[in-house]
């Protein structure tokens, strides 16, 4: 295991998810720590997205315990509603198939992410309705935060365009910025590099490591592109047919015979180098 000790941020304990007869996740346990990028890898259909869906409340886990420790508080995720997981426990996510608010502007996408803060400031819409100073102050702060994220993902010049009109790579980065605007403790990225060209992939790596280093939050990363995983992750969990087959540092995982057999197949250690798989 990794040497970086410290309190785990997310603890997944014996998670099982069944769909009728199909066991999509079978007794998987792992932890994710703050200031670390935890990669979840595995072949298509291994159950990676399903783990995210259980964590973020879209699916109700059949069995198991999901705990998130944020500061002194800990949250039992499997008992919470989806929107509470996002707003209280602080888990933000992106989607394998990008889900932006396509007919809203880039800036509006980032403001919707700050809904909770703004809604509280608008006091049941009344303070907002009358444009009270307290609300206007909160709105300005929200726009400033959005602007900082736009600068970080190089989209400031397109802030007022419809999000749906952005090129694919920009949409991916915007979705990450939107997730971060909600102020999470754990950021879950579902195949963020899918469909990106090598230059964009490189930018993305810098964005993700930058978020880890500057904000000290935990990051869960589902990724197919092995070069991304090996370069930036601190800790790798390998799933195959819903089961965890390996867990450790990138170097350990790469050397694990079970992983080579199941995932890398007959190929060399490096694996499919830059297999920018178009998101399965």
């Amino acid at each position: 295991m990794t040497a970086t000790a410290g309190q785990p941020l997310l603890t997944v304990d014996h998670l099982t998810m069944r769909f009728g007869g199909l066991v999509a996740i079978d007794d998987v346990s792992f932890v994710a720590r703050p200031r670390e990028i935890t990669a979840i890898i595995g072949p298509n259909g291994a159950g990676k997205t399903t783990v995210f869906n259980c964590l973020t409340g879209f699916y109700k886990a059949t069995e198991g315990m999901l705990t998130l420790c944020r500061g002194t508080r800990s949250y039992l995720l499997e008992r919470m509603e989806g929107h509470d997981i996002a707003s209280h426990a602080g888990i933000a996510r992106t989607f394998q198939n990008i889900r932006l608010f396509a007919n809203m502007s880039v800036l509006e996408n980032l403001l919707v992410a700050q809904h909770r803060v703004l809604m509280a400031a608008s006091v049941g819409t009344i303070a907002g309705m009358f444009g009270l100073p307290s609300y206007r102050h909160a709105e300005r702060a929200a726009i400033d935060k959005a602007r900082q994220w736009l600068d970080r993902v190089n989209l400031t010049h397109r802030a007022d365009e419809d999000a749906g009109n952005l090129p694919y790579g920009d949409q991916r980065r915007l979705e990450i910025a939107r997730a971060m605007c909600s102020g999470p403790a754990l950021l879950c990225l579902d195949e963020p590099a899918a469909g990106l060209n090598p230059r964009e992939t490189h930018q993305l790596n810098e964005l993700i490591t930058g978020i880890r280093d500057d904000f000290g939050i935990g990051i869960l990363l589902i990724e197919h592109d092995m070069s991304v995983v090996m370069q930036i992750s601190d800790h790798v969990v390998v799933l195959d047919y819903g089961r965890k087959i390996s867990d450790g540092t990138p170097a350990e995982v790469r050397a694990d015979p079970a992983v080579i057999r199941a995932y890398l197949g007959e190929e060399e250690d490096e694996g499919p180098q830059s297999q920018a798989s178009a998101g399965a």
């Binding site: 879209f58 996002a86 707003s87 889900r99 509006e108 809904h115 909600s182």
Partner: peptide, 17 residues
């Protein structure tokens, strides 16, 4: 803005709390 976001994508809405 939340109404419009709901129209655009309600799953994304939930994921944003």
């Amino acid at each position: 803005r939340a109404w419009e976001a709901l129209r655009e994508d309600d799953i994304a809405c939930q994921s944003l709390g």
